[in-house]
Design a protein around this nucleic acid. Structure first.
Lengths: 165, 165
DNA sequence: GTTATTGCAAACCATTTGCAAGTGT
DNA sequence: ACACTTGCAAATGGTTTGCAATAAC
């Protein structure tokens, strides 16, 4: 859908969301605005639960219920502001999809850390391959799995443990 | 963990699983064997629920409970036979991770078709990028989103529709 | 014979939803 | 005023788990 990212970027996330809502007869409530401001105040990945917790603590007089957080996140994805990234451990994570350039991730299998990187060559190759299949690309997602610098060091303290049996 | 994929490939999936189990004092039961045979009888993506249903119909005298399917899939992932692929719609999907070469996917946003492709350049670039971060890669997953040949043709019949609200 | 495994049904848990009260336009 | 939203709590739905019966080794 949205192709002209470089140009859209002028508008603030809140404004963009307001536009999205307006065109559907929806409203920019205090809660929604608060969530957007908060979510775009830093560039990092987060899941619904983390957001709910932070919005609880970080209370500037406004608190947002769990249900509203879920509902709003869903709409932010539709509005093109956030992207939902499915993680194999069942936890979905969100990241900025607006005002932020295409990037990919290194995912540590041990500690779960996400490291972002950017590379144009990949986009180029992808474009060519797709064209060969008569496929029109709009975006891509590349995740590289392995061990981050810390976790690949020998005999470090044990990291997170996830499963049993 | 497993690095010598090219060599391991000699052994059948069932054997590989048996080895995995053996080294942990676990057993290759009828149910587990049946699931592995079934899962590796065709190369396609599936989710837990689909598998449960198929194992129910396709009954060769053996039936496997939902709980066992879940438990076994989890172990097949640990054994390096399957890979769990998180999909943004909440449904996790599995694919062969053993005896099948690295490949990536073109995913049609309209009809959902998955087209596989293989490209070494990408692996090479990924390897270099990761190295620069002190990251040791074991595998990667690249999904390219867009429209497949059919769906990009003008005015075709309407395809799947997914969401509401 | 031991000990792991299965199947069932209950338990979990993140997410969704119905509904009455509240709020933006 | 009217419709959209919120928060609460109950409902959902996929996945997990406790436990007694069963089957590998």
């Amino acid at each position: 859908m949205a192709e002209l990212s470089a140009i859209d970027t002028q508008i603030s996330p809140v404004e963009k969301f307001r536009e999205y809502l307006a065109t559907r007869g929806k409203r920019l409530t205090r809660e929604r605005e608060f969530i957007v401001e908060y979510v775009f105040s830093t560039h990092e990945h987060f899941d619904s639960d983390q957001l709910v917790k932070r919005l609880d603590e970080n209370n500037d007089g406004i608190s947002v219920s769990r249900a509203t957080v879920y509902r709003t996140l869903k709409q932010l994805v539709k509005a093109g502001l956030l992207r939902k990234v499915a993680r194999p451990n069942g936890r979905d994570v969100y990241e900025h999809d607006y005002g932020y350039p295409q990037h990919d991730h290194l995912v540590c299998n041990k500690c779960g850390t996400l490291i972002e990187f950017h590379n144009d060559e990949i986009s180029t190759i992808v474009e060519q391959l797709a064209a060969a299949e008569g496929f029109i690309t709009s975006s891509h997602r590349l995740e590289v799995y392995g061990l981050c610098r810390d976790c690949s060091k020998p005999q470090r303290k044990r990291h997170k443990k996830l499963e049993l049996m």
